[in-house]
Amino acid sequence: MKADLIELMDRIIQVLQINIRWMTWNLFLAFIPLALSIWLFRMKRGRSWVWWLGFLVFYAFLPNAPYLLTDVIHLIHDIRTIQSVWIISLVLIPVYLLVILAGFEAYVISLINLGYYLHRIGKSQWIVWVEIITHALCAVGIYWGRFLRFNSWDFVTQPDALLTKGIEEILGKQPLVIIAITFGILVGLYWLMKRVTLGFIRQRNNSIDMPSQGINSNKSSME
């Protein structure tokens, strides 16, 4: 029994060691646009050339956040490779869910911050259209990353290959179908996760406001 437990723990450590590097890297790339969205859209600053440069970098890296959805192919591969039901159910699936949800939540919050900025500058009517366009661009970016193996920095390091090969590839029937399916998944998941996130934020704000209101009412009664 003890030997079996030790063997199981060794296999769990091996599985985590295999996946931890690429998971950490992909999460790092996913959180770059999140950090930029806070800097660009939550902090009041003028739209200087630095702001516009940050905006371009934001959109270049944004597909990395929903890109984590495609990492489910690694999960499928691991399930086929690892025969232990315990490792699959107690380690693999929870870890993959955590990583994928964290990446997509970074995408959701990034777009919420962008919508907040549009609302602040009086362009609330653009929010839905900007979200739809962003989903479409990210669907293309995800295809480029997963199937053509392009990276966000290739906009600078090899822009010619990105534009020529990238555009040629997405004009085929199969790529367009994949991009359309990806777009639909992004729209549906974003719609759901946005409402969950905003609901959580409202609930948190209400729970903070209630104690402060209680303090104010106590002060008034004491006066």
Results as ranks from 00 to 15, higher is better:
Arg80Leu: 06
Leu111Glu: 02
Trp49Thr: 15
His74Gln: 13
Ala3Leu: 09
Trp126Arg: 07
Arg204Ile: 09
Trp51Val: 15
Gln158Lys: 08
Ala180Ile: 06
Gln83Phe: 05
Ile132Glu: 02
Leu90Glu: 13
Ile20Asp: 06
Thr197Val: 08
Met23Asn: 08
Tyr67Trp: 03
Phe150Val: 06
Arg11Trp: 03
Arg80Gly: 15
Ser84Met: 06
Phe41Ala: 05
Gly103Thr: 02
Pro175Cys: 05
Ser212Ala: 11
Ala35Asn: 01
Pro33Phe: 09
Phe200Ser: 07
Gly166Asp: 10
Val50Trp: 00
Thr134Met: 02
Ile87Tyr: 00
Asp10Leu: 12
Ala139Arg: 00
His74Thr: 13
Gln17Thr: 10
Leu186Ala: 06
Asn206Thr: 05
Gly184Asn: 03
Arg11Lys: 13
Ile32Glu: 01
Lys44Ala: 12
Arg195Asp: 10
Trp129His: 08
Leu189Ser: 07
Phe58Trp: 05
Trp129Asn: 13
Leu62Gln: 02
Trp153Asp: 02
Val196Cys: 07
Phe155Thr: 08
Leu111Val: 11
Asn151Met: 02
Ile76His: 09
Leu189Asn: 06
Trp52Asn: 15
Thr24Val: 10
Ile12Gly: 05
Ser221Asn: 05
Ala136Gln: 00
Tyr67Pro: 12
Phe200Gly: 06
Leu92Val: 11
Ile38Lys: 00
Trp126Leu: 11
Gly115Trp: 00
Ala65Pro: 09
Leu163Val: 13
Leu56Arg: 05
Ile88Asn: 12
Ile76Pro: 00
Ala35Pro: 00
Met193Trp: 06
Asn206Ile: 05
Ser89Tyr: 02
Leu69Ile: 15
Phe41Tyr: 14
Gly199Asn: 04
Asn151Phe: 04
Ile93Asp: 07
Arg204Phe: 11
Ser37Leu: 11
Thr134Asp: 01
Phe55Cys: 14
Val72Ser: 10
Ile133Leu: 14
Thr157Tyr: 07
His74Ser: 11
Leu111Asp: 03
Gly46Gln: 11
Trp129Asp: 10
Ser48Arg: 01
Leu5Pro: 04
Ser212His: 03
Leu29Val: 09
Leu163Phe: 08
Ser84Glu: 12
Ser48Lys: 02
Trp86Cys: 08
Leu34Thr: 10
Val50Ala: 15
Trp52Tyr: 13
Ser48Gln: 01
Phe147Arg: 03
Leu68Ile: 15
Trp39Leu: 15
Ser212Asn: 11
Thr157Trp: 03
Trp52Ala: 12
Asn206Lys: 08
Arg120Gln: 14
Gln83Asn: 13
Asp209Phe: 09
Gln125Thr: 08
Gln158Glu: 12
Val128Gln: 08
Ile109Trp: 13
Leu8Met: 11
